Simulated assay, not measured.
Amino acid sequence: MEDPTEQSLWRPLHDLLARLDAEIGQIYTDRDVKGLKPTWVRELLQLHLKGPMTITELADAIGRTHSALSQKVAAMRAAGLVRTVPGADARSKQVTLTAKSKKLVELLAAEWRATEAAIAELEAELPYPMSQVVRDVEEALARKSFHDRIAEKLQ
């Protein structure tokens, strides 16, 4: 069998996103911030702005699944950025910022704004902005889901 992963239309997009995340991560390293991943910033800012939330509330606030957020909260807890306490019932946990992350929120908000400005600058240099590509892909997927496209190819 040939290796089907040798060719990929998908990999360049994943590689680009990983590169951009790594460059954002370098901003934190430059400022001697340890243990912070760029993919956690939105959640940390939401907790700062809205206060303690259950994992379900946080997942709803950012549009992710409970399972995905539960794993992310566990990783942020291990990094010392959040803590969890029992929620109103035995099944839920309240997520709160730690003193460590509270010291970082101004930097995180500034980095978020700077990143958005850098993306806008980058898009101005492109003949076809990334945000338009996303909208166009979403419209195409509204016509036929990615699942259905893959399933058809497997038949």
Rank of each mutant, 00 (worst) to 15 (best):
T54L: 08
L58P: 02
E123K: 03
T5D: 03
V73L: 07
E23F: 10
A74I: 05
G80T: 07
D60V: 11
T54F: 03
S67F: 15
K100D: 02
G35V: 05
R149A: 04
V134R: 11
V82E: 01
V137P: 04
R91V: 13
K103L: 13
M130N: 09
A99F: 08
K37N: 14
I150W: 02
E111F: 06
E57A: 13
A120I: 11
L16I: 12
A78P: 00
P38E: 08
A90V: 14
A75E: 13
E111Q: 08
A151V: 06
I27Y: 11
E106N: 06
G80A: 02
D148Y: 00
Q71N: 14
A78K: 12
I150N: 01
P38D: 06
V137Y: 06
L122E: 12
R31M: 05
D32K: 12
G25C: 07
I150D: 00
W40Y: 10
Q46T: 15
L36V: 08
K103N: 08
Q46L: 15
A110E: 13
L9C: 10
A18D: 15
T29I: 15
L9D: 07
E116R: 12
K72C: 11
Y128W: 11
D21L: 15
R113K: 14
P4N: 00
R143E: 09
G63L: 03
E111R: 10
D3F: 00
H48R: 11
V133A: 11
V133F: 05
V85E: 15
R77G: 05
E2N: 13
H48I: 01
P38T: 09
L108G: 00
E138T: 09
W40P: 07
A59W: 02
S67M: 15
R135G: 08
I27K: 11
Q46F: 15
A75M: 10
R149Y: 04
E152R: 00
W10L: 14
A78Q: 09
D21F: 12
L9H: 07
A61W: 01
A120W: 06
L104F: 03
G35D: 04
